[in-house]
Computed example of a mutant assay.
Amino acid sequence: MPHVHRRPKMSISRCALLCLSALLALSSTASAAENGFEYGSGLRGPAEWGGFCANGTKQSPINVVIADTVLDKSLRDRLDTEYGKCTYAVIINDKSAHHLDVEGDGSFGNLTLNGVKYELVKFHFHSPSEHTIDGVSFDLEMHLFHKSADGKFAVIAIFFNESHDDDAESPFLKQVFSWLPNITQPDTNVTTMAPITLESLPLQGSYAQYSGSLTTPPCTEGVSWVVMLNETQKMSCPQFGAYQKVFPEANNRPVQNTRCRSVTRFEHA
């Protein structure tokens, strides 16, 4: 009769430990999936983001080095926008995205860029700024987020700095930040009682253009970026303080390697 090799029986305690380990691993995976990405140096911070965030070749944000940009005289001195003046908005404390998000109850208007028409669907904020200009960071960066009919993205970045001037209050930010006390808790929102107007935004002057990505996972590439260069806006100390009270933690992705990408600019006379 051939000799039969029998596997030793696993003890109940060892089996229980393996089952517990498997459950903990599943729990950890589920928790990571539920909580998504984070900022800072933690296990879900920018250095650990996967997909395009880790392997892409045209990532955002970048440090715009003015001396390295290419002057393009074909660019217009004012961006081709048609923003509406009668759109109410929902202001959201978005826990999963870690930022203040503003969505219109209708279209905010349109941007035409490089022959493509995009709809302004929302805007949000990062502090400190994600893009830098010649290595200089700003207190706040607003992203006007546009989407075309075929799913392409275009984003306009506008910078704000805190100022102690008497006239430093931003009329535009006032429309949004005055509602911050209503959304102090994550995943809460409030609908504005008056339309949001974008007419006070600085959409003329010098700006840079380049091809990049979303700055949050999955860091999708093919995004057309417009970065306003010399129209940094003022905001008052109370305004910035109201923002920091609700969003005290930094939510900026570090600047990414340009990888020899061409960055063009329009220089306002």
Rank of each mutant, 00 (worst) to 15 (best):
V136P: 01
M142F: 02
R6L: 11
S11I: 04
I156M: 03
V226E: 02
G50V: 09
R259N: 15
A250L: 07
T81K: 07
P202T: 06
A250Y: 12
A25N: 07
K245H: 13
S31F: 14
L100C: 07
S236Y: 04
V226T: 12
G45I: 09
T220E: 08
S170R: 05
L100Y: 04
V263Y: 01
K58V: 03
V116P: 01
G84Q: 12
L23V: 14
G51Y: 08
F266S: 00
R76L: 12
E162D: 04
V70N: 06
N257F: 11
T215C: 07
N189I: 02
S27W: 12
P238Q: 06
S211Q: 07
R259F: 14
H268Y: 15
K95F: 11
P8F: 06
P46L: 03
N230Q: 08
L203N: 01
H124E: 00
P128K: 04
A30Q: 10
D134S: 09
S236L: 04
F138M: 02
V116T: 14
I91W: 03
H126N: 07
E231W: 01
T232N: 02
D166G: 13
A168Q: 02
M228A: 06
F177A: 03
H3Y: 13
T197E: 04
G45P: 09
K58W: 04
N182K: 14
V246N: 08
C19F: 14
K85T: 15
A54E: 12
C15S: 12
F138C: 00
V64Q: 05
S96V: 12
Y243F: 15
D166N: 12
E38P: 03
C260H: 15
K174F: 11
L214M: 09
V102C: 06
R253N: 14
R44S: 10
C260Q: 15
P218H: 07
K117H: 03
Q209C: 08
Y207V: 01
N230K: 10
L198V: 05
N35Y: 11
V102K: 03
N55S: 13
H146D: 00
K174Q: 14
Q256Y: 02
V227T: 01
G212D: 01
F138L: 00
A22G: 14
A54Y: 10
V90H: 06
G40R: 10
A32Y: 12
R265K: 15
A33I: 14
R253M: 10
P186V: 09
K152V: 07
D166H: 11
D80G: 05
C15M: 10
